[in-house]
């Protein structure tokens, strides 16, 4: 179980200004500003949960991940992960976690992947039989059997990312932190990575915390969402809650045969091309099924689809709402 209570962290950042005279001035005096990277962050993640951690750049996502993985000591607050405080008992703690940075590699660049794996096995003191079992399971699930003997620098980004994920799981951690794992990947690799994470969470019960800017990742993977902005947790809830809370409008796209669509206060026809129309309804006034019933009462429906606001749009409007 992961428990964060009132975690706060402030950084001191040196100012640098442009121009010749400023540059000379800076030789003698430096100005600093203080940035509140984390303000009173609290949340709890149960074992086996999968959580999406979202927020704009610089919101405090990676600081939180650093605190949880023991690299960063917060100014105040408490963080207990499986009974340990990460920054106090670093060595024991990191045995239980795996971390994947989408933008950085942990594999040794010039040697075949398998050499890196074997070194990691020794670093984490994984016993031989356990290693073999984990490795064969991972190579199969991630489909990296063919590339495992290739030097890392010759791999494509998608191949490398799959190897990175395998490398982070060799010691069978209970918790996996994924920092933008699908960044820069093509569609096929993205889906492969998502499927794997899903399976891992379902079958091994690994707790997964995922930070990403890719809303499709969130949609595909996580039920629960944490939204952080300016160092504060703004929202903690499920994806559908998030959507509902923010948007009560849905769009019905219908193909129909008939004369005239019904007109009502709670249904707005935004486009009608005779046989094909888009109708926006407010779900706080009328439910989707009521709307469909009303429409089919006056025309014959051939096809209908219901779309809500996309997650991306929701998030953008959330950012706006919280002014971040």
């Amino acid at each position: 179980m992961i428990e964060l209570k009132n975690i706060s962290k402030t950084f001191k950042v040196a100012q640098r200004s442009a121009g010749f005279s400023e540059a000379v001035k800076a030789l003698f005096k430096k100005e600093y500003t203080y940035v509140n990277a984390l303000r009173d962050v609290s949340f709890t993640v149960q074992d086996g949960e999968m959580v999406g951690y979202i927020g704009p750049n610089g919101a405090g996502k990676s600081s939180t991940v650093k605190v949880m993985s023991g690299i960063l000591t917060p100014d105040s607050g408490e963080c207990i992960i499986d009974g340990l405080t990460p920054w106090k008992s670093r060595k024991e703690h990191v045995k239980n976690i795996g971390v994947v940075f989408g933008q950085r590699s942990q594999l040794w660049w010039d040697v075949p992947v398998i050499d890196s794996f074997e070194l990691l096995r020794d670093i984490y003191k994984v016993d031989e039989s356990g290693y073999k079992k984990t490795l064969s399971a991972l190579t199969e699930q991630l489909n990296i059997g063919d590339i495992i003997k290739t030097p890392v620098r010759q791999l494509s980004l998608g191949q490398r990312m799959r190897c990175e994920i395998a490398a982070s799981l060799l010691h069978s951690p209970k918790i996996l932190f994924l920092d933008e794992p699908t960044i820069g990947l093509d569609a096929v690799s993205k889906i492969a990575v998502r499927d794997f994470i899903k399976t891992l969470n379902r079958e091994n019960g690994t707790t997964v915390i995922l930070t990403t800017h890719d809303m499709q990742d969130i949609e595909a993977l996580t039920e629960r969402i944490l939204l952080i902005g300016k160092g504060r947790i703004l929202l903690d809830g499920t994806l559908s809650q998030l959507k509902n809370r923010h948007s009560t409008h849905k769009t019905l796209t219908v193909d129909y045969i008939g004369e005239k669509l019904p007109e009502a206060e709670n249904m707005t026809v935004v486009k009608d091309m005779g046989g094909h129309a888009e109708i926006v309804i407010d779900t706080s006034l009328i439910s989707v099924s009521q709307a469909v019933a009303q429409i089919s009462a006056s025309v014959e429906l051939k096809d209908i689809s219901v779309t809500g606001e996309s997650v991306d749009e929701t998030v953008v409007s959330l950012y706006k709402e919280f002014n971040i």
Binding site: A18, F20, A23, L27
Partner: peptide
């Protein structure tokens, strides 16, 4: 030149 002047501590 200005970029080079930025490094106070280095100087």
């Amino acid at each position: 030149f200005i970029a080079g002047l930025q490094y106070r501590a280095a100087a």
